[in-house]
Amino acid sequence: MSDYELLAESPLGGVEIELDGFTITEVTDKSLVMVALPRDKFSDIESSINKSCGLKLPEMQNSTNSKDSSITLWRLQKNQVLAYFSYEGDDAESHLSERLSAPAYYTDQSDTWAMIRVSGNRSRDVLERICPIDLSPEVFSVGNVSRTVMEHIGTVIYRDGDDSYVLLTMRSFGRSMLHAIEVSADNVL
């Protein structure tokens, strides 16, 4: 037995940056599991997740919440949803599949993504410099989610509040994304 133990670290070390009207924080209390939807099981899955959690399958670029608001489903592709939910254990996949109890295919992706929340009344001003999709409040509403490119980095953007957005990039691009946001904030604020 070794006399040391390995400690899990979040991709950005729990970064928190407060600026005037703009806050950057790493999201560390969420897990992410991909739920692939086999075509011939669509209706089975729809009824199972409704029964187990009060969830519906979201429309494209939209999300739905479970009855207790702990699980959010994102629809970024036709044949899959991403489950974004409050859970900090290291067995997110079995945790979610038990809760949904639907005949889908689950893949844990929690540790492969860096999740950064940008919030505050200047958040859209900072994001519009790097985000190519239209983030006007009436076009990209609360609950909308989309995958796009920011500063050449593939990014998922989710609006989780009036002035709050969660950006997801591959873990290895987390620092670059953080840098891109900081530079944009520096230019705008």
């Binding site: 670029q61 239209d134 490119v149």
Partner: peptide, 11 residues
């Protein structure tokens, strides 16, 4: 058709 207007950079 599903996602609305997108920059050709994404393609």
């Amino acid at each position: 058709p599903l996602l609305g207007p997108r920059d050709s950079e994404e393609f």
